[in-house]
Nucleic acid binder design. Structure first.
Lengths: 170, 170
DNA sequence: TTGGAAAGTCAACAACGCTGACGTAAACTT
DNA sequence: AAGTTTACGTCAGCGTTGTTGACTTTCCAA
């Protein structure tokens, strides 16, 4: 594992892309790219009283309208106290609407208001601009590879959530 | 931009991979994958008094031994006060060594100690395990695409830093 | 009817970003 | 030689976002 090679010896395939050095570079690429990935929405959010956590909540409520708090908790991977702080401000500011469940009145179903949808548009438009130009520059084959690797990198539960959202959205 | 298509009309190429929905899925993939990406080192760090910021500092000091504080600042993209808080504990704990510059005595050159290198190994081994299995599963072509997209996604300055590190490491 | 899940709240805390201000030493620039 | 800039460290204070722990209310289900 610390031998400078990704694996010992294999059935003749070229596994040079699995060397520690290659993996190290990929780790750095993830780090730098993620910085770029979040930079654009972050710039918008600083002006308002919001942060990245608000963006994430808004994103997933838009993506899965009517989702419950518990479900959102699973998607975001944070504690309910942490999410609650964010949701409270979003509801108070009229960006998110929380309605008691019909069949199960313990649950709260979350929806974006008109204003919430507007902010979501602004944020995701900003984020997509970078993505789109990167995708266009890299080309369809690179993009396919990109997504394949990201998907295999996720924890199984995250992959499951991701796939469900994917089916929903088309 | 909110028309459900990535672009309006083009010279006959298939640009379906640039639709808003495709980009939205990619954004979610980045989010979920990055969670996985940081999960393993994070688990190790909680036991010690360290966090992700310590990991990043250790990573880049290992990667660019003898780097100055200023240079590290640029790589990490944080303020010197933020970095200093992290460096102070790492130096106090004997993981990082800071030596006054020879030619320019204002500079501090940073190196990992034996203990620092040991921790770096532990952390990056943990992180590479996931990367390696994802890479192996996805295959070389997917990995190449993955890296291409990440690189085009970076801010130009970050890409520059990334490339310089790449040349250094081989 | 009682146990427990779901949701919300309060309090306290930690990691890690930020700004602003200040100090020191070394290195440049004029 | 004097003045300015650069590199670094540090203090103080603040904001976002994560955490635990404890506690209440609501309400479904056994």
């Amino acid at each position: 594992m610390a031998d400078g090679r990704g694996t010992s010896s294999h059935s003749g395939e070229n596994l040079l892309f699995l060397t520690d050095e290659q993996l190290r570079q990929a780790i750095e690429a993830m780090f730098f790219a993620y910085r770029g990935f979040t930079a654009d929405p972050d710039r918008i959010l600083v002006d308002m009283a919001y942060g990245r956590a608000h963006h994430r909540a808004i994103h997933f409520i838009n993506r899965a309208p009517g989702t419950t708090v518990n479900n959102l908790l699973g998607l975001l991977g944070v504690t309910k106290q942490s999410l609650n702080r964010v949701l409270r401000t979003l509801i108070a500011d009229g960006l998110v609407q929380s309605q008691v469940g019909k069949s199960d009145k313990r649950e709260r179903h979350l929806h974006l208001t008109e204003a919430g949808r507007a902010l979501e548009q602004t944020l995701s438009d900003a984020q997509r601009v970078r993505m789109r130009s990167a995708f266009r520059e890299a080309g369809p084959e690179a993009v396919a590879g990109f997504r394949t690797v990201l998907e295999t990198m996720m924890d199984p539960e995250m992959r499951h959530s991701y796939m469900r959202l994917k089916e929903n959205g088309g």
